[in-house]
Structure formats: C-alpha cells, structure tokens
C-alpha cells in the first residue's frame, strides 16, 4: 500500500493505529466512502483510550437531573437564531431570566452573519432553566428557536432533550 507507506514517512504521523480501534465502529457500507485518510488512518484517539481526560463533574447545590454544571455556572444553547441577530439584542432577551455571565454569538466565517446558535452562561440553574423553558419552541426575532442545556452528566444517545420536564 503505497499510500500507507507515504503517510508513515511523514513526520506528522505517528505509527499506524491498531485495527481494533474505535474508528472501526464507524465503518459503513452502501454510503459514500471518500478521502485519503480512510486508507491511512491516523486517529490519535484510538491510541489513548486509557489516558486521563480532564472532566468537570462537580454538582451544584440543586438537583439538575441530567444537566451537568460547568465550572462557573450553567450553559444553555439556543438554535435557529436569526442570522441578523445582534449580540446586544440577544443579551437583552436572555437577561430577562437572570444575569447572563457570558454570551457567545459565533459568526459564519463565510458570510459574516450569525451562524445560527447562541451559547449563554447563567450562574444559577434556575435562571438557565427558566430561559430554556421560556425560549424552547418559541419565537425569537421572528424565528421559532430551540433551547436546551449544553452539558450532560453522561451519554445522551436516545434522548432529545436534557432539560428536566
């Protein structure tokens, strides 16, 4: 396999990954399979499954269900946000539920407009929960948005939302 040899020669590559790696879970058939990387896998994650990753698992003082607290509070995400939304307006809307400690309204690098999601941090779970409940499925700047907490205590497969009912 010349391609593999070629990849192994490059000093940006480490020795090739074992075959019983996590990536084999993602093997598929019948769909598109494309890319030079498929022949010369170099996934670093395959090789450090046992390494320690830093996590943040502290609990707050309230019962949050599946919601994981972040270092300085609770992070929520609102999606389908209008592309012309201004950070100041969003800050005003979100401040109705509590003090917004941090707000990330990231832009689409190609168009320069808002990408469509906003991340906000509240110090208190109740504030974040009120914001999620008030915004999810409701109109914001003329568009129906979705809202939920961002971080969960564990795997979220099979669920659609993590905010408590």
């Amino acid at each position: 396999m010349s391609r593999r040899n070629n990849a192994d020669r490059m000093d940006v590559d480490e020795p090739s990954a074992s075959s019983s790696s996590s990536r084999s879970k993602h093997r598929s058939s019948g769909g598109i399979r494309r890319g030079r990387g498929l022949d010369a896998p170099s996934s670093r994650y395959d090789r450090d499954e046992d390494m320690d990753y830093e996590t943040y698992t502290q609990a707050g003082t309230v019962n949050t269900g599946r919601v994981q607290k972040s270092v300085e509070g609770y992070i929520i995400c609102v999606t389908n946000v209008h592309e012309e939304a201004a950070e100041e307006d969003l800050h005003d809307y979100l401040s109705e539920y509590g003090v917004v400690r941090n707000l990330h309204l990231n832009l689409d690098r190609r168009t320069g407009f808002a990408k469509g999601y906003v991340l906000a941090e509240y110090a208190k779970f109740e504030e974040a929960f009120d914001a999620v409940r008030a915004l999810d499925g409701h109109d914001l700047l003329g568009q129906v948005v979705s809202a939920d907490f961002v971080f969960a205590k564990g795997p979220t497969k099979g669920t659609t939302r993590i905010a408590p009912e």
């Binding site: 996590t55 961002v150 971080f151």
Partner: peptide, 10 residues
C-alpha cells in the same frame, strides 16, 4: 485534554 458530554441539541 478535556472531555465532556453534550446534549443532543449540540
């Protein structure tokens, strides 16, 4: 090295 679980919405 950081690791966290994100909600389905993300």
């Amino acid at each position: 090295r950081k690791e966290a679980y994100v909600s389905p919405m993300i």
